[in-house]
């Protein structure tokens, strides 16, 4: 049993290292880039939009293209996030998606 837990296939290890190298490359690319380029004016404004734009892109398919339960729960979570601490808003989102899925499949 313990031999199964600690088993490492050489090709699996190699694949993991290849994944790690390509991930690290993307993570330091911005560091290298900003050493040679300084951003101001319009490009700075564009770069400031990166955080919300990426976060939105990651959630958009689940939030808007999965089903009515997910889309409604997204709206509820967003409204809750304006007034409540993050953990509370997240909890409301998770509970509402469960309730909505049950309600929508009941009909």
């Amino acid at each position: 049993m313990s031999s199964e837990i600690f088993a490492v296939d050489p090709l699996v290890l190699f694949t993991i290292l290849a994944m790690a190298a390509s991930t690290y490359l993307t993570r330091i690319a911005g560091l290298v880039l900003t050493r040679f380029v300084t951003f101001s004016g319009r490009t700075e404004a564009a770069l400031q939009a990166v955080p919300p734009a990426i976060l939105m892109s990651v959630v958009a398919p689940i939030a808007f293209a999965t089903g009515a339960a997910e889309t409604t729960a997204t709206a509820i979570t967003a409204i809750a996030a304006l007034r409540l601490p993050m953990l509370a808003a997240m909890a409301i989102g998770v509970v509402s998606v469960v309730v909505l899925r049950m309600a929508l499949t009941a009909f």
Binding site: T15, A18, M19, A21, S22, T23, L25, T26, R27, I28, A29, G30, L31, L33, T34, F39, L47, Q48, V50, P51, I54, S57
Partner: peptide, 22 residues
Amino acid sequence: TVAFSTFLINLRHVLMSASLAP
């Protein structure tokens, strides 16, 4: 395929690190 797909899905990190670095 696994390594290249990893690179593609993680391309967003280029923008993320460029945004955070300053």
